[in-house]
Amino acid sequence: MTGWLDAHLVSMVDGVAYGLLLFTLAVGLSLVFGMMDVLNLAHGTLYLAGAYTAYALSDGSWLGLLLALVVGLVVGLLGGGLLAAAVAPLQGRGHLDQAALTLGIALIAAEVMVMIFGAQVLPTAPPSALARSVSVLGHSYPLYRLVFIAVAGLIAVLVYLAFERSSVGALVRATVADRDMVRATGVDTRKVLFGVFAFGAVLATVGGVLGAPIIAPGPGVDDRVLVLSLVVVVIGGLGSVRGALLGALLIGQVQTLGVALMPAFAPFLLFGAMLLVLVLRPQGLFALGRA
């Protein structure tokens, strides 16, 4: 048993890092859908924008990372605001139009990024102080990933507390459960739309800045992380922060530990997990609202 644990420790820790990274993406996707009924297929683009920001600004120094974070924050605010503004006129026109619009925006943005950064994957170095390995229980492990786990874990806890404990969080949860009721109490849903969009977008771009050394920016990365976070949202249940967190951690393990254990089934594991959850609990593990 300890031997097994020892052999797969690295995979499991990788899975935690991966899962937390997915959480920063999935939570925005989930809330925007749960609250505003908008399926944002350009969400992966925000991650990619954040990751490219990190690539462009990181020079191995702490200042470079800080700068990238600030710029990423601004990019997220702008991107989220832009998406919210683009989607706002489509309220009440059904999911298909919103999906089509955001997919179109994603295609355009992806092409623009290819024009700027080229078509190859750009490995992004973490700050040089963190660009080394440390020994964990006899395994050599990249220090940056451990720091990432700590930082992303902190973000996850903060987001979780904000939504489960604060009054703003209560409003969000109420909106997921019964949108019309909240609208009837006089809350300006347009403001909420912009707020939630911007919040989700900032999390995604910041996730991109921090995640660039783990999932390096390149063409197609936007699709990949989008699909992964969609799976997380389906597993966790639409509109639930707790569901997104647990779903993300689960998918993180499936993608690392699962693949290490069953390499032959690697392509099927992710969606096998999703289909299994759908069969057992069609509404997701922690659904609040009904799709």
Partner: peptide, 24 residues
Amino acid sequence: LAIRGRGVAFLMITLAIGEIGFSA
């Protein structure tokens, strides 16, 4: 499996089925 969801849930499941096909 796909028809267990409707609307956006259906969209997401079909997306996943598409990805399985692609990886397979």
